[in-house]
Amino acid sequence: MKLTKIDNNFSASPQISVEDLLDIKAAGFRSVICNRPDSEDGGAHPDHNLLESAAKEAGLKFAYLPVVPGQINDAQVAGFKLAIDKLPGPILGYCRLGIRSKVLYERAR
């Protein structure tokens, strides 16, 4: 899994799988934020509910804040800021390529 470390509290990643969650936990992350809508690409990627359930089993906190590519608005940034302020860090944010998660984090700071 390719991670882009933004700072000591946040990294961004492309789409993750259930199998990645133990590695995410082992890497020291305490929370995961999904920024990819379940319906994106016809839902060919794992549903956030499946990943949330597996994350909780692995001892990770999980938040679902879906964002459509190229359509990030102020309300979504505010919601993201609330999530990163509330969730224990370090946090891994993911979407299809990791770009939306990175942009949301940068705008929330």
Rank of each mutant, 00 (worst) to 15 (best):
Y105N: 10
E40M: 07
V77S: 03
S31M: 03
S17M: 10
V67T: 13
F80R: 06
C34R: 04
K56N: 15
V67N: 08
F10Y: 12
A78L: 11
K5P: 09
Q15L: 10
K5V: 14
H48T: 04
H45P: 00
E19W: 00
V32K: 01
G43R: 02
N49H: 12
G70N: 10
G98F: 01
R107P: 08
A58H: 06
D41H: 13
S101H: 06
K81D: 01
A58V: 05
R107M: 15
L60S: 03
Q15A: 11
E40H: 11
N9Q: 14
D20G: 06
Y94P: 02
K2W: 01
L51Q: 06
F62D: 08
K2S: 09
S11G: 04
A12V: 05
V68A: 10
P14S: 05
R36M: 12
V67C: 09
G28Q: 03
K2I: 13
H45D: 13
Y105L: 09
D20L: 05
L104N: 10
A26E: 15
Y94Q: 04
N49M: 10
F62E: 09
L3R: 05
R107N: 13
K61G: 04
A83Y: 01
D20K: 03
A78S: 14
D7S: 07
S53D: 13
R107V: 02
G93V: 05
A55S: 12
D74E: 15
F29Q: 01
L22M: 09
P69K: 10
D20S: 08
P90I: 02
N8T: 03
V67Y: 04
N9M: 12
N49V: 11
N35T: 08
L65F: 06
L97F: 07
L82Q: 14
D85M: 07
D41V: 05
V68P: 00
L65Y: 08
P88D: 14
I91N: 05
V67I: 15
L65S: 08
I91T: 04
K81R: 12
Y64A: 04
I24T: 10
I24L: 06
C95S: 11
L82F: 04
A63H: 09
I6C: 03
G89V: 07
I99R: 12
D47A: 13
S17K: 13
G59L: 02
L60Y: 03
A75Q: 14
N35D: 12
L97N: 12
A54S: 09
L21H: 04
D41N: 09
F80Q: 05
A108F: 02
P37H: 10
A55V: 06
S39K: 15
A83C: 01
G93S: 12
N73R: 04
R109D: 08
L82S: 14
A83G: 00
S13C: 12
I24M: 08
A44R: 14
P88R: 06
Y94E: 02
G59Y: 02
L97I: 15
I6M: 01
G42S: 12
R30P: 00
V68S: 13
E57A: 14
E40W: 08
Y105C: 07
L50A: 11
